[in-house]
Amino acid sequence: MPTFKNYLIGFISSIILTITAFALVEIHVASRHRTLSHPLLIGVILTLAMGQLVIQLCYFLHLGDKSKRWNLTFFISTLGIILLVVVGSLWIMYALNFNMTPQQVNQYLQDQGSY
């Protein structure tokens, strides 16, 4: 059952996570990209976003409730589809770029008449 305390916990921790991610990026840019390596920083802010996802699912959308078992099941299967769509697109398009040689790119642009 949702309570005021639950909403308050969800709200305050969401704000803290958002501002932490923002501050990390701002400090990083201000220090001319020297605080952390880019892959590490991206990992950290994505983790903060995932943390916020879990917090809001629990405290705002009450997915932890026993009566919401089916909602949770549906959500997890949706996550599977999302993973396929996003990772699949990135993988295929990256491989596509990788397999194009510069000559092929130039030829393509010439054929399109935009070169």
């Binding site: 969401s14 958002t18 991610a21 923002f22 990026v25 990083h28 840019v29 990209h33 880019h38 920083l41 991206i42 802010i45 994505l46 903060l48 976003a49 916020q52 996802l53 809001q56 699912l57 959308l61």
Partner: peptide, 16 residues
Amino acid sequence: LVWIFIFTIVYLMGVL
């Protein structure tokens, strides 16, 4: 919830 990911992926990762 959707906005959190727009904020993180589009805006925060965009300025890196």
